[in-house]
Design a protein around this nucleic acid. Structure first.
Length: 314
RNA sequence: GCCGAGGUAGCUCAGUAGGUAGAGCGGGGGCCUGAAAAGCCCUGUGUCAGCAGUUCAAUUCUGUUCCUCGGCA
């Protein structure tokens, strides 16, 4: 049973890439003593401030920002690890009497923060590598069959081609001795609560902004940023390199893509990503949607939401 | 102007030994419990360039017109 003191209030601002989250967050900072906490799985990497569209130093100077550019490219982060870091930051911000504003585009991160995540212990990288190796030798179908007999409940939920989830399920089973579906039945209550504001922007509206942003990134040295990161850690399979744009820029640097083709591909992939984000957020029943032109409404609703929360948590 | 190769889904192309056609990409829709900017699923009727001919039947054969791309002039 949770007491009121165990509930940590937050404000959440989500939306697809290039929908204007950063500027809205800063606008809110003029009304409330906001501290922004990053809820974006790519903006945690220090080597890619430009490519992952982290707030600029000028933007960060407006109010405190947390969890941006904190990891090296070879460091893996998981949704659960992010949640633990974010929770620590939230508590810290609240202790200063400030407003934690979670801001980002990673739907799953908001999900884990607001609704919790199964308490599965971290898994060993070697275990996954071994299972991946088996996929290569025995074929995915064999491992899917294995999952069907060992954890039929979870196997029924995923597609036989879903390699990532098949491997994950077998890995958890091997390491914890419990099935994933079993783990998922554990209570996942979260001590964090607050409104989830979502910018709802159509792809038609987003596209010109995405194009402009990427062209701007190119001008501001995205290619150099990638080259520098690569010089520091010359392995594009490292976790930090999975931002959209990295593979495209790397191909350009290696000469397998022209500058123009890399740009086109980067834009295309970003569009597909924005589409997926929209699909994710659209399905959140607790979300409070607003259009990009309703920034003022967001500000006032966020302010009154915070006031309400505060009357319960003085 | 001549010779050759082509004109099939938004794009790149496959194909039909004559029975009105299919992949990839793109687009659209969706899923999502620790890699999530990841991963995965569903979704393709288009005068098969135009016209005429042969045929029960032509996108497929023949003729012709137009267009594109090479080569020769």
């Amino acid at each position: 049973m949770q007491t009121a003191a165990d509930v940590y209030p937050v404000l959440c601002l989500a939306g697809p890439t290039a929908s204007g989250k950063t500027s809205l967050a800063l606008a809110l900072a003029t009304e409330l003593p906001v501290e922004v906490i990053n809820a974006d799985s790519r903006q945690v990497y220090a080597d890619f401030p430009l490519i992952s569209a982290q707030p600029t130093p000028e933007e960060r100077a407006v109010c405190p920002h947390h969890l941006y550019g904190i990891l090296s490219s070879d460091t893996q982060i998981s949704a659960g690890e992010w949640r633990d870091m974010a929770l620590a930051k939230i508590i810290e911000v609240l202790s200063r009497g400030h407003v934690p504003l979670l801001c980002g585009g990673t739907g799953m991160y908001f999900q884990t923060l607001l609704h919790g995540i199964a308490p599965i212990p971290p898994t060993d990288r070697d275990v996954r590598a071994r299972i991946e190796d088996r996929v290569g030798r025995e074929g995915l179908a064999a491992l899917h069959n294995e999952l069907c007999s060992k954890d039929p409940e979870y196997a029924a939920k995923i597609h036989p081609h879903d390699r990532q989830r098949i491997v994950r399920a077998l890995e958890v089973l091997e390491q914890t001795g419990r099935t994933l579906s079993d783990w998922h039945k554990e209570g996942t209550a979260s001590p964090v609560s607050g409104p989830l504001f979502v910018i709802q922007a159509s792809l038609d509206w987003l596209m010109p902004r995405i194009e402009a942003r990427i062209e701007c990134m190119m001008k501001e040295g995205a290619l150099d940023e990638m080259k520098r990161a690569f010089a520091r850690a010359p392995d594009p399979s490292l976790p930090g390199f999975s931002s959209i744009g990295c593979a495209e820029l790397l191909a350009c640097a290696r000469g397998t893509l022209t500058f123009e083709d890399a740009l086109t591909l980067w834009i295309k992939n970003t569009r597909a990503y924005a589409k997926r984000q929209n699909t994710w957020f659209r399905g959140r029943k607790e979300a409070r949607f607003f259009s990009p032109s309703e920034g003022k409404r967001f500000i006032s609703e966020a302010c009154s939401a915070w006031e309400n929360i505060h009357s319960f948590n003085p």
